[in-house]
Design a protein around this nucleic acid. Structure first.
Length: 339
DNA sequence: CCTATTTGACCAGA
DNA sequence: TCTGGTCAAATAGG
């Protein structure tokens, strides 16, 4: 145990170092982007094609940081982390179940209850994910498509709590969920707790910025969008680098967020603008990465103060105003297919 | 027949 | 040990 723990420590150290570097680069990138925007308009081609410039350089560094991190993890062979961002997990929990659950027999996750009595309730809790709560008179105020997956009587509550997840969880690995419960004081109002960002964003809701914020609650899914832009860019670089360096393992970090887009059977009207950006929420990428070490990390606060909520703030790349101007010209979500 | 909802089982975390 | 979050079989609805 001890020799191993020493080894593990040094590995962790390396991994953390790399992540910190990556974080710093990301911060620089953020500054750079905001600076660029304040001085000039960022054109679409700039973001999509990515000529050689400081932005690309930083992105390359960030990717490299991740790459090194993963290499370190690979070198320690086991990598027993069942992170939600992993390819398995991202596909939907049915398929992911064997990974995160008890490691035991499992075989196939699709056991029938009663016979196998195995995997039900097997999941990874998102205790650190960003959450925010609104009060609303309707549960469908936001424009996302939700699917109910559970209902539960809550202790000392008059009303049961309903659990919803994004309809696109299966198809696009969107991890957003929400909890809805009637308010005891005023049963005509619902208390809606949103958990996590939509990584399927900009597709089926009428407009991304029609946040469920009718009630003056601070929303930060704009950050998700901002990160989305960056992620688009990153994705492009990932593809390039993959070809050169075979860093497919890098996908582990963000793969859950990108992999489905290619094989949506070509049906429906999902264009790529939405497809690729959809699944990349860089803040979540960071979250996931950081969560990998969460159990052992005492100094996580150093990287994102406190909890997930702050993490997503930290990793937003562009502010709202920039965001709108970035999106408008060349990613017409509303017009093409978003409705 | 396909998709969404219901509901009891199951499990993680406090 | 208990509570609450999630899973997935069963069921309902289109």
């Amino acid at each position: 145990m001890d020799p191993n723990s020493n080894n593990t420590k040094s590995i962790k150290r390396k991994v953390v170092d790399q992540l910190v570097q990556g974080y710093e680069f990301a911060t620089q990138l953020q500054l750079l982007l905001s600076h660029q925007h304040s001085s000039q308009y960022i054109s679409q081609t700039r973001i999509v094609s990515g000529d050689l410039d400081p932005v690309d350089e930083l992105i390359a560094k960030i990717l490299s940081s991740f790459h090194k991190t993963i290499s370190v993890l690979d070198s320690c062979d086991s990598v027993p982390m069942a992170v939600e961002g992993s390819p398995n997990a991202s596909r939907g929990d049915d398929l992911a179940a064997p990974v995160s659950c008890n490691g035991g027999d499992s075989g196939d996750s699709r056991k029938r209850l009663g016979v196998g009595k195995g995997k039900r309730g097997c999941y990874t809790r998102k205790k650190r994910w960003h959450t925010w709560t609104v009060e609303a008179s309707r549960i469908d105020e936001d424009k996302y498509a939700w699917r109910k997956y559970g209902q539960k009587e809550i202790l000392n509550s008059k009303f049961p709590r309903s659990y919803f997840r994004c309809t696109h969880k299966q198809t696009r690995g969107c991890k957003a969920t929400k909890l809805v419960q009637k308010q005891e004081q005023d049963p005509s109002l619902f208390q809606i707790t949103y958990i996590g960002h939509h990584t399927c964003n900009v597709s089926d809701q009428t407009h991304t910025n029609t946040e469920p914020n009718d009630h003056g609650v601070v929303m930060d899914s704009d950050n998700a969008l901002a990160a989305t832009i960056a992620q688009d860019h990153v994705n492009a670089n990932i593809q390039e680098q993959e070809q050169e360096n075979d860093i497919s393992s890098l996908i582990v970090v963000g793969a859950g967020m990108v992999k489905e887009e290619g094989n949506n059977n070509g049906d429906q009207n999902k264009n790529y603008c939405e497809g690729s950006s959809v699944d990349g929420d860089l803040s979540l990428v960071w979250q996931d990465v950081m969560m990998m070490f969460d159990d052992h990390q005492h100094h996580q606060n150093h990287y994102y103060q406190g909890e997930t909520s702050t993490a997503s703030h930290q990793f937003s790349f562009i502010d709202n105003d920039q965001l709108f101007s970035l999106f408008d010209p060349y990613c017409p979500y509303e017009g093409t297919n978003a409705i």
